[in-house]
Design a protein around this nucleic acid. Structure first.
Lengths: 192, 192
DNA sequence: ACCATAAACTAATACCATTCGTTATTTTGG
DNA sequence: CCAAAATAACGAATGGTATTAGTTTATGGT
């Protein structure tokens, strides 16, 4: 058959289709074939745009991180009180994850491939979002990395356990999250 | 060919082989074919032992939970101080997850299928392990579910972020975990 | 207008899960 | 003790996936 008329697919179009697949079918539904189907091309043609299925998943996950960081930035814009910033960040992650379950699930599976030497800007931004309020809270520089990891981990774990239905008891999950965030902030704020 | 001589494979043998595959090749390596290979039978014969690949994964994940709960039980055996129990539980989960990465990764993906009505004994045991020290700390009954979820989530999230290499900064991860656990215990212990 | 490149195609390979029908062994009930 | 039933293996077939190789054709630059 050869090439069809009109300009070929742009990287952005491929990424958009892949994101749509993930949002619609979940992280498991992402693959060379499903995205090819969504684009109306044959699976083999996908290799003109990505080098492998794994690379495709990595790109979509990176796009998810970009979107999450954007959502968090606008969530804390204009807020000055550090504890309130942390609260907004925590709830911002959970809200985004609930609204973008497929994407968040993919981001959790795919591990970044960048060597620990150079941290990409988007990851830097994510770190800074948490680092700033922690600094304003008076957490010493060398403790902040521990505090950041603690907060990220706690929020991440909560979202994943919630998404995979592992909170069995019939207590309000939203209330549990509020409780958890307040407890975390208390714990971090009282660090030496 | 028909059946081979001798007794057929027991459910325990199939499970053992599946666990070995997961431990050796990771959660992604688990499948009808890989376990059949490990057992020396053809993939089609696997369906005499499991109903589907998904069911196989669920069984292995359940076995993982059983083993984790056993490890935690023996970790806190004889310890009376509640904060020390929580510390041991947290570090017990992380240590087990590090030592059984494939199994823990699988447990994180597979969501249990039991209806929220009847909670299996092993899940009950896991809840109780955390519930007891929280009660001894004086956390009110109606707050304990929130506290339990917070602790589980924080530990779970830390382990997953660590396993997927998302802690980029070159600070000591073990030190971060210790810091996180102390912060969590402080936060929970000061709950109203 | 020409040519190189980009981007689609077809075809082929190699996995994987699953189902079906068949066969041989083991177990069980009369 | 033997025949019938249940069990557990098989081969073959179907349909899904990722991937590679070679081919064709439209587009964009010189």
């Amino acid at each position: 058959m050869g090439r069809r008329k009109g300009p070929g697919l742009s990287a952005a179009q491929v990424l958009e289709a892949a994101v749509d697949v993930v949002q619609g079918e979940g992280a498991d539904g992402l693959g060379i074939s499903s995205v090819a189907r969504a684009l109306g091309i044959r699976p083999a043609s996908m290799y003109n745009h990505v080098t492998s299925g794994e690379a495709l998943a990595r790109r979509v996950a990176d796009e998810g991180t970009r979107r999450l960081v954007e959502a968090l930035k606008s969530a804390v814009r204009g807020v000055v009180e550090p504890q309130e910033q942390l609260r907004l960040l925590a709830h911002g992650v959970r809200d985004w994850a609930v609204a973008n379950g497929g994407l968040y699930g993919l981001m959790a599976r795919v591990q970044p491939d960048y060597s620990s030497a150079d941290i990409p800007p988007v990851a830097r931004d994510l770190l800074d979002l948490f680092d700033r309020p922690l600094g304003q809270l008076g957490i010493a520089q060398d403790q902040r990395v521990h505090a950041m990891r603690s907060l990220r981990a706690a929020i991440h774990g909560f979202v994943l356990l919630e998404a995979s239905g592992q909170f069995q008891l019939d207590a309000d999950v939203a209330e549990s999250f509020r409780w958890s965030v307040e407890s975390l902030i208390r714990g971090v704020a009282t660090a030496t």
